[in-house]
Design a protein around this nucleic acid. Structure first.
Lengths: 377, 377
DNA sequence: CTGAAAGCGCTTACAG
DNA sequence: CTGAAAGCGCTTACAG
């Protein structure tokens, strides 16, 4: 494979006709639209003066307080529009003792599972006044650090914590905070949560592979610190055992990457290669995520094994891409999970004392071409 | 294909051992860790009183003001730690006239290109005190709406606008704002920007396909309102013409989806199918994104065409997944783009009046197995 | 090195 | 329906 190194280049007209401008050197001479980092702009005092009312009245019209006459409301509105007034968010938050932003702490944006869940979240949020702060926490230490920021006083109206084991310091952090929390893809008895039944998913995968004639299954697992990955594996292994087949330690390959890594193509590729290099050729592979399955299939292809003829492969997640790759997998309703997570958070904000609720989705088998049963049927 | 409908279920112990709790109904009886949506917690007044100093002094130690004696600094610190004090972000922003959050307006999180760029951004940001607000703007109207929120007074120290045509209302919005802006994957003479040379990418794709023996190329393009997609296509077509080959209108299929859709697998699939159904079987296909290429390959597979033997395929982006799919493509340095975008924004915040700079990356050809030259070589 | 005071831009009882 | 005033929790000259 050949990769020409990319480079950023400057100071020449490139093929697209865009004039490239180096950091120093005056090229653009038009008026600079940017003035600084300080807030300027007009306040309620400006519009109060202009409209001939008090600031209280101005504030009332912007808060849709009914106790403002139509007349004054109209003139305030007109002045505000003309001057391009907009409330200052920090001042408003401070005075209201309430903020309109919520935070999501996710292991990494470049994990497509999270991208999909966040998409669902955003779609649901778009009809609300809330803004979304996204914190990235690839390692367990990062989770604590980012949680600290997200739970900062006045920072978030609520936080959604993704895929984190809630115990120890993190558990303490959450307990000390008054911010509503919902857990996504993880569990703790004290907090609302939304997840899919990972054990059940593993069980379904095992049943399915068994029915498809697999006799020597292997598991490509992400980092064992990941609770979802562990549950998927345990469900799989348990169902195997209930069918009289045991999962040999040699057939369980675990990613050594950081706590929430191992959910990527490379880990799947490496895991599959390590199996193959050890002379192990399973006839069925359960990967704890779709991307791992994709990596594994690449390893199989490079080693001249055919999927599903030689090796059947099943993933987990059902990313949109899985469909176009013909990947058999267990679907998590990612979009819906994001939307529901937001609903739960709103519910908790409105009723802080209501009973904690856990929503668990059942994963659904999506039968495609990387397994044999589809062919048989 | 069979998909069992997933469902959320409640009130039974599921296989994973998690007790499912319905929304109403008391099951969790432990102490509720959540108390409400209002800020509580201790302020500088509390710690000033406890430490026997003024609030000014407390503030100074938290702002690392050197003019505090070591002794008082130590006691204030101790009291603050003991009481678990943390500054209130809104109060601080208001008083400082400055906020520590920046905003990114992206078409959609579920487009993996953005997920990768944002990852690069986050990685760079993690060493800074800044937080990231993510706005999602799938349609052109949404862009205006979200920009309005992101540019709200006091909202963002800076905003990064992704893939949006900066003209008309949007241009006006930016001009009226004092917030530093950097453009990512788009261009305007008045704002710092970072992008890749899309036309050049198209040209390279054309040259490459031609060299690989393609005689009847086709283009699978995203929505024509997308400037990057248009430039890629134009570069491709131009280079073809310079080589005496013209791109017939029948061989240019354009997605009819919304302004920033068409960058997805389904669009690639549908585009390829429409070609095939019209009896057109190109021997080379340039897709304006990797995911479109993946969709197209699925269509080809379903129609029993072999890649690259019958049809060569080249994508754009070089998502991590492309490598494991053997997809030949043009790489954009997504991670680096995110990091650089942040640097540009910081630079602009510090030097509001400095010359506008445009950074353009040259896309790099990554030669893999969906084209023939790799095999020939 | 430290404190009193004004101010950041809103909201919201409290009177009228 | 409207206004004066206090307050949200900080920061930052200004004095000392």
């Amino acid at each position: 494979m050949y990769v020409s190194a990319y480079s950023s280049y400057s100071l020449r007209a490139c093929s697209s006709g865009i004039l490239l401008i180096p950091a120093p050197g005056p090229v653009f001479n038009g008026p600079l639209p940017i003035r600084g980092r300080f807030y300027v702009g007009i306040t309620i005092y400006d519009i109060a003066k202009e409209a001939g009312v008090s600031i209280a009245t101005v504030s009332r019209v912007f808060n849709n307080n009914p106790r403002v006459s139509e007349g004054t409301r109209a003139i305030v509105q007109e002045v505000a529009d003309r001057l391009g007034y907009q409330p200052h968010v920090s001042a408003r938050s401070l005075a209201r003792r309430q903020t309109e932003t919520i935070s999501a702490i996710v292991p990494m944006l470049s994990n497509y599972f999270y991208a999909e869940v966040l998409k669902g979240l955003q779609d649901r949020m778009s009809a609300t006044p809330f803004d979304l702060l996204v914190y990235s926490a690839p390692t367990l230490d990062d989770v604590g650090e980012q949680a600290e920021k997200a739970l900062h006083r006045g920072r978030s109206a609520g936080v959604m914590l993704f895929s984190a084991p809630v115990k120890g310091d993190l558990e303490r952090q959450l307990q000390q905070s008054d911010t509503p929390v919902v857990l996504v893809d993880c569990y703790h008895p004290g907090y609302d949560s939304i997840s899919t039944d990972n054990r059940l998913g593993g069980e379904i995968a095992a049943e399915y592979l068994l029915a498809a004639g697999v006799q020597e299954p292997a598991v490509l697992m992400a980092n064992p610190l990941s609770v979802p990955a562990s549950h998927r594996m345990e469900g799989f292994r348990g169902m195997l055992e209930r069918n009289g087949i045991s999962l040999a330690p040699s057939h369980l390959v675990v990613s050594s990457e950081g706590y929430h890594d191992g959910f990527n193509e490379q880990a799947g590729y490496d895991g599959m290669m390590s199996l193959l290099e050890a002379g192990i050729v399973p006839d069925g592979v359960f990967a704890t995520s779709d991307v791992q399955a994709i990596g594994a299939m690449d390893a199989l292809r490079n080693s001249e094994y055919k999927v599903p003829e030689d090796v059947q492969v099943i993933g987990f997640d059902d990313l949109p891409i899985a469909r176009y790759l013909g990947l058999t997998t267990l679907r998590q309703p990612m979009h819906e999970m994001g939307g529901r997570a937001f609903d739960l958070l709103m519910e908790r904000m409105v009723h802080p004392e209501s009973t904690v609720a856990h929503t668990v989705f059942a994963p659904a088998l999506v039968d495609r071409q990387t397994t044999r049963s589809a062919i048989v049927a």
